[in-house]
Design a protein around this nucleic acid. Structure first.
Length: 752
DNA sequence: GTATTATCTAAGTCT
DNA sequence: TAGATAATAC
């Protein structure tokens, strides 16, 4: 057994050993916060507290998983399995599924993700014939989400002249009606959105004292990580749950609060102090992560913020190198410089790729980076952006699955009632929705009793609807007979998805097919690893999954590309923060308000403090944004950094290559080629361009070579067909078999 | 009702 | 620029 208490410094040890009572740990970046949390939980269990009685709320599911594993090794038994540990959303959805009947939901309720919610709002706006210039789904949704997070129901909204006035001015008089309808439709569809998971949990424990009591007794020890990023509802729920025992430990850092847009409220830290007057504070101020230069640089930045809890972050680590700020001509050059620098350091210092991270303010910035890294054959992985689970083909398959579990799910029905095309169009769908809405029933209720209602549809359409109902029913009937994998396989085959995807031989089509295959593989793994291998179990938290939750083995040693938000809690030896420009970072949306600006500064603080050994900052004078080049100015944050800790422009600006930007060239060609124009001259010139393009990107892949593919792993090239951009390689992958891949999309790396 | 093409419009961070 | 929507032809 590891003697865990030996590995802590005095303040960490004090925080770990203080078992009873309310306590707050203020933990600077790199100060061993996760260590304190894991050791504290391990210590609780070691002193005889039952793991069943511990609740730990983390910020990501990945963090929870890692922590659980570490606790398991520390305490050397499997008791850690009994811990309740996860994000607020996943823990609360688990409680809600157990207690669903109390609030008139089925335990199999659906979780609507952002796009489900927005689609629903969009159709409500359409049904109400509202002016879509004033009623934009995303704005309405944000507003609803904000209200929910501030605990304001539609009725509460109606009672607030102030809120009503705000919407009146914005010409959104019908807002409260939309809000009301949205809730009603979610409920009827047996669905909760992300905010409902919190709100309904609050309702549950607020209105059912026996349930509150049950969980108060169960969760005798509560730990909350990243407390600075909890919102008001989360605060209220924790407060209620902890009220009986008051054994609550919150861990956070006000300087790293970066989620106010999601309702996070630093006020929660102050509330904690007034709620539990006899609380104890532990400050972790020693940074073990970064060089002293980086720690001082971060301090010099964050001192510009007015709102702060007093603390002094310091380190014993050696000085290290200065931070480099690099000016570049445009975003493409920025990408090139970053990738050149990475490969240079990698060559000199023999590091792993996983030691590098490139961080940015917005997801859109990843593109120029990707291009540069690919050109240098540097393996990378992008986090965030379009998640695997938000791809159309994946959502389609999951919509079938959702219907099997909860046929009332309106968004799922809308998604697939005509996918694959079965002749049920918009008009029919509108009739169904309106009838259901009028009768206060779900669409499925109408479908299964279609004879009973006068929908004014012709017999052909009616037959098609009946066929659809029959199809879904056939899955529902057999859903307990098969495990999740078998059932989804049946759905894909019988539902016509397989046929639809398989017949599409375009590049995108092949890609979609592969994605569905990957989903199936994921479900197969799930079935192998759990006893509860029915579809119900698989679907339970699928809406709460993110890309990080299904990390692949061969993704491990890669350069990380992610937003700063996503990088919270992580650390890397080498960190690049790109796009240090006004209007981008700080974002243009925040520069008008002091609070907004302070939050952006905290965000930059988070970015800086991810770095262990070296930090590189860069900005471009020109950036391709919103379809055109715009002039940029360096970020004001750069001026706020201590100049003594910085070297400007140490990286030499590489000579601009003479070729045009391949990406642009390619999209242009794709567009031209698809217009089927038979202008010979044009095609000729396109061919020449493509030749150039494919030569630059494919790095001369030849028969017999060993190559690496991001998904399939290592393989050998057997055959190459086609010309230029249409070049296809037949490759044999170990353990997977033969695949035909289009070279320009396959992102192959030659292995020597 | 469906598939294709032309036009318009928005543009952030995440569970 | 890219995604959504409107317009058009089948």
């Amino acid at each position: 057994m590891i003697d865990y208490l030996e590995e802590l410094n005095s303040s960490q040890l004090a925080a770990v050993k203080n078992i009873e009572g309310p306590m707050m740990v203020i933990a600077g970046p790199g100060s061993g916060k996760t260590r304190v949390l894991t050791y504290r939980i391990a210590h609780l269990i070691k002193t005889g507290i039952d793991a069943f009685n511990i609740l730990a709320l983390t910020f990501t599911n990945k963090a929870a998983k890692e922590m659980r594993n570490r606790i398991e090794t520390i305490i050397n038994n499997s008791e850690a399995h009994n811990l309740w540990m996860g994000t607020f959303h996943s823990v609360f959805s688990r409680i809600l599924r157990i207690e669903a009947d109390k609030i008139n939901y089925s335990p199999n309720f659906t979780i609507y993700d952002t796009s489900d919610s927005r689609n629903l709002i969009k159709s409500i706006i359409k049904e109400m014939n509202l002016d879509k210039d004033y009623y934009k789904p995303s704005i309405i949704h944000n507003r609803i989400s904000n209200l929910k997070n501030n605990f304001i129901t539609p009725d509460g909204y109606e009672n607030s002249p102030e809120l009503i006035q705000t919407d009146k001015i914005a010409k959104r008089d019908a807002f409260s009606k939309i809000y009301y309808k949205y809730n009603q439709r979610c409920f009827k569809a047996g669905a909760m959105d992300f905010d409902d998971l919190l709100l309904n949990t609050y309702h549950l424990i607020n209105e059912f004292p026996d349930i509150l009591y049950k969980y108060q007794n169960k969760f005798q020890y509560i730990l909350v990580d990243e407390y600075q990023d909890t919102n008001h509802i989360q605060y209220l729920i924790i407060k209620k749950l902890a009220a009986l025992n008051e054994n609550i430990c919150v861990v956070g850092d006000d300087a790293q609060s970066i989620y106010s847009f999601r309702g996070a409220d630093i006020q929660n830290i102050l509330n904690f102090q007034s709620d539990y007057p006899d609380y104890l504070t532990f400050k972790l101020e020693q940074n073990y992560r970064s060089t002293s230069n980086i720690v001082c640089l971060a301090n010099s930045l964050i001192n510009h913020n007015k709102k702060q809890i007093n603390k002094e972050i310091w380190t014993n680590n050696h000085k290290g190198e200065k931070t480099i700020i690099c000016k570049t001509i445009d975003d493409n050059e920025e990408g090139r410089i970053v990738s050149n620098t990475i490969s240079e350091i990698q060559r000199k210092e023999k590091t792993l790729w996983v030691d590098y991270a490139v961080l940015y303010r917005t997801n859109a910035q990843s593109r120029s980076l990707e291009e540069a890294l690919r050109r240098k054959n540097i393996p990378y992985k992008i986090y965030g952006g379009l998640s695997f689970y938000s791809r159309k083909e994946i959502k389609d398959v999951l919509a079938y699955c959702r219907l099997c579990i909860n046929p009332d799910d309106e968004e799922a029905i809308k998604r697939i009632i005509n996918y694959p095309a079965r002749g049920i169009g918009n008009t029919t769908m509108q009739k169904l929705i309106i009838t259901a809405d009028n009768l206060n029933l779900s669409i499925w209720d109408i479908l299964i009793n279609i004879e009973k209602y006068d929908l004014k549809i012709n017999n052909g359409t009616k037959q098609r609807l009946e066929d659809f109902t029959q199809l879904i029913n056939s899955f529902i009937i057999t859903k307990d007979k098969y495990d999740a994998y078998e059932l989804v396989e049946k759905i894909i085959k019988n539902g016509g998805i397989y046929h639809d995807l398989f017949s599409d031989k375009s590049i995108e089509g092949i890609n979609r097919f592969e994605n569905v295959q990957e989903l199936l593989n994921g479900i197969k793994d799930f079935c192998k690893n759990t006893k509860e291998n029915k579809l119900d179990s698989f679907m339970q938290d699928v809406a709460l999954l993110t890309n990080e939750d299904n990390e692949k083995e061969n993704d491990k040693n890669k350069v990380t590309l992610m937003t700063i938000h996503a990088a919270k809690g992580l650390e890397f030896p080498y960190v690049f923060v790109i796009g240090m420009e006004e209007n981008l970072f700080p974002s243009i949306m925040t520069i008008d308000s002091k609070d907004g600006l302070e939050e952006e500064r905290r965000l930059f603080y988070v970015a800086i403090t991810r770095a262990e050994k070296r930090l590189f900052l860069s900005y471009a004078l020109n950036r391709f944004r919103w379809g055109k080049y715009i002039d940029c100015e360096p970020s004001r944050f750069l001026d706020e950094l201590d100049k003594q800790l910085i070297d400007f422009n140490e990286i030499k600006i590489t000579k601009k290559p003479t070729y045009k930007k391949p990406y642009k060239l390619y999209t242009k060609i794709k567009k031209e080629a698809s217009t089927k124009s038979s202008n010979l001259k044009k095609i000729d010139s396109i061919k020449n361009n493509l030749k150039y393009f494919s030569n630059t990107l494919n790095e001369n892949i030849m028969v017999g070579q060993n190559v690496q593919h991001s998904r399939f792993g290592n393989g050998k090239v057997i055959k190459i067909d086609g010309e230029y951009a249409n070049q296809k390689a037949t490759i044999f992958f170990k353990g997977i078999g033969q695949k035909i891949l289009l070279l320009k999309f396959a992102k192959l790396k030659i292995i020597k």
